[in-house]
């Protein structure tokens, strides 16, 4: 019994220590370094026109990418779990592609297709529409890297609830759409909520793919993550820490939302 207990405590200390060293200490240090020069300096660093623009651009991209991925994610999860069609395994694999491929490669792939030399990019360019080195490309990159989140959160929930409730709704006269809105969607709402939170966090924090397709034009195609990198490269450490702290605050806010959204206990 005693060894059992000391084992348990030992494992806990190990787990917490691991978390502390890898996560809490670095993030805490960012905040500490940020506020070292004083709150005024922090405010100055995050209220420059470039910083304000980066802040709004980050939110704008997230505001497009998150609803789009939510919709797409729910539809894809429904197809994966409920659908019966050939090549389902292929869709299953493609969904995880953004997890498997490095974001930089995703960015380069987008340039190949939508850049001025790419087949889609050339056609779009002739019609006066620039994707790469502009906001549309950044949205595209963000959507791409965020594809798996909603699908991977919603699909298991769909699988768990089964389709009996939907069948019951059908026997009671509900059309497919009615059954979806009144039965399926309320049943998967926590899965959707988790997916949205994770997508938001990733959309705001995405660096690699967005960096490649953005062109990093200050005041135009610069998100918060890109701003942090630029300031860091320019030895503006205080400015970089301040922008990092802003990012961390948004991320922590999303995590907090996730914790607060935790399902209240609905026993089966």
């Amino acid at each position: 019994m005693r060894t059992d207990r000391s084992w348990r405590i030992g494992l806990r200390v190990l787990a917490l220590g691991y978390l502390a060293v890898l996560l809490l200490v670095p993030v805490g240090l960012v905040f500490w370094r940020t506020f070292e020069p004083g709150a005024g300096a922090v405010w100055n660093a995050v209220s420059t026109p470039a910083a304000i623009h980066a802040f709004w651009l980050t939110l704008e991209i997230a505001a497009i990418a998150v609803p789009l991925n939510t919709l797409l994610g729910i539809v894809t999860a429904l197809a994966l779990v409920r659908g019966r069609f050939r090549g389902k395994w292929l869709l299953e694999a493609v969904i995880d592609l953004p997890f498997a491929i490095s974001p930089i490669v995703i960015g380069l792939a987008l340039i190949l297709v939508y850049g001025s030399g790419g087949w889609a990019g050339r056609w779009l360019g002739q019609h006066g529409f620039q994707v790469i080195f502009a906001v549309p490309g950044m949205v595209l990159a963000t959507v791409f890297v965020c594809v798996p989140f909603v699908v991977r959160e919603v699909a298991p929930v769909l699988r768990e609830i089964g389709d009996e409730q939907e069948q019951a709704a059908a026997t009671l006269g509900a059309s497919r759409m009615q059954a979806f809105w009144r039965i399926t969607l309320p049943a998967i709402r926590w899965g959707v909520a988790y997916g949205v939170v994770l997508t938001t966090a990733r959309a705001i924090g995405e660096f690699g793919a967005v960096s490649v397709v953005s062109g990093k034009i200050a005041g135009q195609t610069e998100t918060l993550t890109l701003l942090v990198e630029k300031r860091f490269q320019n030895f503006d450490l205080a400015g970089a820490y301040a922008a990092s702290a802003l990012l961390a605050v948004i991320a922590l806010g999303t995590l907090l939302a996730m914790t607060l959204l935790k399902p209240r206990k609905e026993s089966s």
Partner: peptide
């Protein structure tokens, strides 16, 4: 005919209660 139009009532073994 789809189940909606058959004028049936169906009861499932595991109730299929709308939990929410």
């Amino acid at each position: 005919l789809p189940p909606q139009e058959r004028g049936i009532g169906f009861v499932f073994q595991h109730y299929a209660a709308f939990k929410h």
